[in-house]
């Protein structure tokens, strides 16, 4: 548990003249459940874009599993073990649900294996999500929670060491939030390190072992959920006073 899986060191990202991230430094330990919070526009998604490789950080370094990620393309990072979900689900809409899962299986985690094996693997992931009976349906008919679950299932199919879940619970009801939280906890218990970005405080505080808070691109607090909830700086950032 002590070993750091992900080391983010002074990461900076600018858009034109606007600084989205300013020297953010943090660590995520192997097997940890890690929470990332902050008000809208604080740089949460920019940070995970830099980690997952859809954006390139302008300064600082990101080390994953002992490997410097600088200049590494997103799909190589996925193969190295970092997978993320998107805030707004981005299913492959022309494919069936099971075919969505087959993409990361075929290109990453089960690359080179027979189609029947890949299908079985995809089915078993859908089963853990309770979506097995929808396997051959199109994505267009899915409800909000099903889209969220598909997004997670597809990410898990890549067999990541580190799963980054970007607001997987936005727009879900209370029961559904609990359901998704439980799914994430189950995967964590199987050894997956998880970063949860969330606006729903109840979920992120219940889920995380450690939380960091960003505000205006800067890291303003780090600690256990209890400490974060009592932190004056975090309160100010959210209430805007």
């Amino acid at each position: 548990m002590a070993e750091a899986l992900l080391k983010v060191d002074s990461v900076t990202k600018n858009f034109g003249g606007f600084t989205a991230l300013s020297e953010v430094t943090t660590e995520v330990k192997a097997g940890e459940r890690f929470g990332l919070i902050g008000p809208n526009g604080s740089g949460k998604t920019t940070l995970i874009n830099c980690i997952s490789g859809t954006l390139t950080n302008d300064g600082g370094s990101i080390i994953f599993d002992g490997q410097d990620l600088q200049g590494m393309k997103a799909h190589v990072r996925t193969a190295a073990g970092i997978t993320r979900t998107f805030q707004i689900p981005r299913p492959f809409h022309s494919m069936t649900i099971i075919d969505n899962l087959k993409i990361p299986l075929e290109f990453v985690s089960a690359s080179g294996r027979a189609q029947t094996e890949i299908r079985d693997e995809a089915m078993s992931i859908l089963e853990t999500m309770g979506m097995a009976e929808k396997a051959d349906e199109e994505t267009s008919g899915l409800t909000q929670i099903e889209l969220r679950k598909l997004e997670l299932a597809r990410a898990i199919a890549a067999k990541p060491k580190l799963l980054i879940s970007d607001e997987a619970m936005a727009g879900l009801t209370g029961n559904e939030v609990d359901e998704v939280t439980q799914i994430l906890i189950n995967f964590n218990e199987q050894g997956m390190t998880i970063i949860m970005i969330e606006h729903i405080m109840r979920a992120v505080m219940q889920f995380s072992q450690r939380v960091i808070c960003l505000d205006a691109g800067q890291l303003i607090a780090e600690g256990t959920p209890d400490i974060i909830q009592k932190d004056k700086g975090v309160e100010r950032a959210y209430l805007g006073v």
Partner: peptide
């Protein structure tokens, strides 16, 4: 084949495809 499925993923959502391990370029 694999190429076709990868291309399809690119058409549907290129960023998601890249993040799911598809070597898009």
């Amino acid at each position: 084949g694999k190429l076709g499925r990868g291309l399809n993923a690119i058409k549907d959502n290129e960023e998601a495809a890249e993040c799911m391990g598809v070597p898009t370029l």
